[in-house]
Amino acid sequence: MPRQRRPLDHPSRRDSFGSAPEDEGCASKLTQSGVGQVDFAAIFKAAFALVVGLDPGFLAIVGLSLRVTLSAVLIAGLIGLPLGAALALARFPGRSVVIVCLNALMGLPPVVAGLFVFLLLSRSGPLGPLGLLFTPTAMIAAQVILVLPIVIALTRQTVEDLWSEYRDHLRSVGLEGMRAIPTLLFDGRFALATALLAGFGRASAEVGAVLIVGGNIAGYTRTMTTTITLETSKGDLPLALGLGLVLIALTLAINAVAFGASRIGARYAG
């Protein structure tokens, strides 16, 4: 069993972060001054310096966030795409209930997902012996739970619409039932890419789940959103703001890609 860095007491709130001198100077200045006298220009300058300077600690946080979220989206895609397609084609009693529940789960509060995974992984929980609590793996698991309903629900909708359009032809060429799934997933590729991006957006923006199951351990389970939460309360505004800028850029990028996908998709959809 792997030895874990398991913080027995709460992860230290005192880890200082960032090696850039401007960063530390600004942070201490801010802690001394009251909120009313925050020097915005200086904060922005320091934040930009962090982003542009490719500070290693800063990059590590961005990297961990991306690793956790991308892994979660990948896993949710591998599970959710076939499952959503199967749900679109299957007819069984209680199907509508399942669909309504899935749609509701799309709005599951991240803290609740976090709590759920926490209970599963906590020392006395059913999966406690795995020792995964407060690790990136736990964070990925929690985010899979957040992303999966989005992927399944949007896949089901996309595939069901396509199926009603393609049904006659696919059955005519002998693709009945589950054998139609590969065709439907492929032909829904642009809409499904958008569904995955929506999942990515939700996971990268959430803070509650990763905070609860990751524990916000410096250099280990600290993501962009949990760092922003912590550093803002500590007063290290440049770091928080720098990460905020990265998150905004990420959101813009996701939307640009989603827009592009739907444009290309519209071309093929005629």
Partner: peptide, 18 residues
């Protein structure tokens, strides 16, 4: 085998997104 040896063309052509 899988081939049916009869095929059908529909009133509104069903074109795959390819």
């Amino acid at each position: 085998g899988r081939a049916k040896r009869h095929a059908m063309v529909f009133q509104k052509p069903i074109m795959l997104r390819r």
